[in-house]
Amino acid sequence: MSHTAHIRSHRKPRRSASTIAMRAGVAGGVLSTLAVAGASGSANAAEPVTQTLELPTLTADLAAQVAQSADVTQQAAASYELQAERDAAAAKAAKEAKADLAEAKKKAAEEKEKAAEAARKAAAERASRSAERATLSASADTGSSDSSGSSAGSSTSTSTATGSAAAVVAFVQSQVGDAYVSGGTGPNSWDCSGLVQAAFKSVGVDLPRVSQSQSTAGTQVGLSNLQPGDILYWGGAGSAYHVGVYVGDGMFVGAQNSSTGVVKASLDYDPPSGAVRVL
């Protein structure tokens, strides 16, 4: 027997193939686990990077939203501006319409007065104006009246006026020669009703401004019973187109028209339609 036979061999026993395979499998599993864990850890570590990479997309969306909001705001501003322009245009149109209305009323009043003046002229032209104006001039210079053939002049009462009537007569006679101006109320130019109104105002009597109203301001009297200071009217009572003041002796004073101005004339020059007595 060998002298070493009783001593165990110092060599490690050989491993079997199955042992080696099992250990390899265990090692592979461990490595796989480590790989998975490592991959998971890498994935977890990479998440912030992934979120950071998505920020440009979110920022682009936000920019688009901001741009859309700005566009809406701009459209709203444009709408408000358009509405403001429309409101301004409407206000301007209303102002112009108001001015046009005032101008139309003014022109209507002027046309009305012109129509009244035309009616007075038409009435005056019923007689031979050239011959009667010559008579008018002579009467104004001498203070006499033409009573021949004048039924109204011959049947009226005395020309002597007293009190307030005398003051009215004196007032209108002092305006003879003044100009006729449509709408005139003195002191140097008159229309027919403006002269009559001013004459009676001088004695404290307030008359309406227009001839239509003045023709019904007092008591109606017949033309055969006139007294100085009576108001004569041409046309219908309440629709008269001309007025004057009877001053006695078959004469009256009135603001006739722009051609003659304020004149003193006989009743035959332009016979009145009626008369009213205020005093």
Rank of each mutant, 00 (worst) to 15 (best):
3 H>F: 03
67 A>T: 11
44 N>T: 15
126 R>Y: 10
166 A>P: 02
262 V>R: 02
208 P>L: 11
202 S>I: 08
44 N>F: 10
71 D>Y: 01
177 G>I: 07
30 V>I: 11
120 R>C: 10
60 A>H: 08
28 G>R: 10
226 L>V: 14
87 D>M: 15
130 S>G: 06
33 T>D: 08
138 A>W: 03
112 K>P: 02
212 Q>S: 15
259 S>R: 04
204 G>W: 04
188 N>V: 13
143 G>K: 13
165 A>W: 04
34 L>K: 10
150 S>N: 08
240 A>R: 06
198 A>P: 04
162 T>M: 02
167 A>H: 04
266 S>F: 00
31 L>E: 10
86 R>V: 14
193 S>T: 08
220 Q>D: 13
277 R>V: 08
47 E>Y: 05
133 R>C: 08
59 T>H: 08
272 P>N: 05
197 Q>C: 14
135 T>Y: 00
134 A>E: 06
232 L>I: 09
81 E>F: 02
93 A>E: 11
275 A>S: 05
231 I>Y: 00
184 G>S: 13
65 Q>V: 12
255 A>C: 12
191 D>I: 05
192 C>K: 10
81 E>N: 07
279 L>A: 12
139 S>A: 15
244 G>Q: 07
200 F>V: 06
130 S>N: 09
207 L>Y: 00
224 S>V: 02
89 A>Q: 15
60 A>K: 14
57 T>I: 04
239 S>E: 11
72 V>S: 14
88 A>D: 08
32 S>Y: 03
237 A>H: 07
25 G>C: 06
141 D>H: 02
2 S>D: 11
93 A>S: 12
41 G>T: 12
23 R>D: 05
205 V>T: 13
61 D>K: 02
6 H>S: 06
123 A>E: 10
97 A>P: 01
184 G>A: 14
6 H>Q: 07
173 Q>D: 08
149 G>W: 01
70 A>V: 05
105 K>A: 00
14 R>E: 07
247 V>E: 02
4 T>K: 04
175 Q>C: 08
275 A>D: 01
184 G>N: 11
252 F>V: 14
188 N>Q: 13
146 D>A: 12
1 M>W: 01
220 Q>C: 04
213 S>C: 00
